[in-house]
């Protein structure tokens, strides 16, 4: 279950100019850069996930390059890491990979529903050392099976 909140803690000052509304101060360049990078990353992973799915059905970078008339080097660069792809390049990639076209959507930044799940919380605790020591203290642990 998520927790609905307004921007909190560390994020609050970061989002201050955005929260100020249309009459607010200029948004600093470094924050614009941060969000540009996020957008690049999101688009890249959207396209990469399409490619990975089609790769399982036999698509290769070479085949994609041939189909959309680009060199293998260009495809390698586009699929290797996030970059400032042009809209035309995104269109070519989606058409060539999965015969799809872009359907833009966006989401509000200022009202956030925090994700409760942290992978750091998950996973097995590794008992790496269990040592018997003589000491002034004992530790009593009650263990029970997780639901």
């Amino acid at each position: 279950m998520g927790v609905t909140s307004v921007i909190t803690s560390q994020a609050a000052p970061f989002f201050a100019e955005l929260a100020a509304g249309h009459a607010g101060p200029p948004i600093p360049e470094e924050k614009l850069v941060y969000f540009r990078t996020r957008s690049r990353n999101r688009l890249f992973h959207f396209i990469l996930s399409k490619f990975v799915a089609e790769q399982k059905k036999g698509l290769t970078k070479a085949a994609l390059a041939r189909r959309i008339g680009k060199s293998p080097e260009v495809i390698n660069r586009w699929l290797g890491s996030p970059s400032n792809l042009r809209v035309d390049s995104i269109s070519d990639l989606l058409i060539g990979i999965s015969a799809e076209e872009l359907a833009p959507a966006s989401e509000l930044l200022l009202e956030q529903t925090a994700r409760n799940y942290r992978p750091w919380d998950d996973g097995e605790i590794k008992i790496e050392k269990v040592e018997t020591k003589t000491s002034a203290e004992t530790v009593k642990l009650s263990l029970h099976k997780a639901a």
């Binding site: 919380d121 998950d122 996973g123 097995e124 605790i125 590794k126 008992i127 790496e128 050392k129 269990v130 040592e131 018997t132 020591k133 003589t134 000491s135 002034a136 203290e137 004992t138 530790v139 009593k140 642990l141 009650s142 263990l143 029970h144 099976k145 997780a146």
Partner: peptide
């Protein structure tokens, strides 16, 4: 320790005098 087969429900440390064995769990 959420979602692991076993988790610590409670932990209690007591002074029990020198000479008692102490189990040290380090992860």
């Amino acid at each position: 320790v959420r979602s692991v087969p076993f988790k610590a429900k409670s932990a209690k440390m007591t002074r029990a005098g020198i000479g008692n064995p102490l189990l040290i769990y380090k992860s």
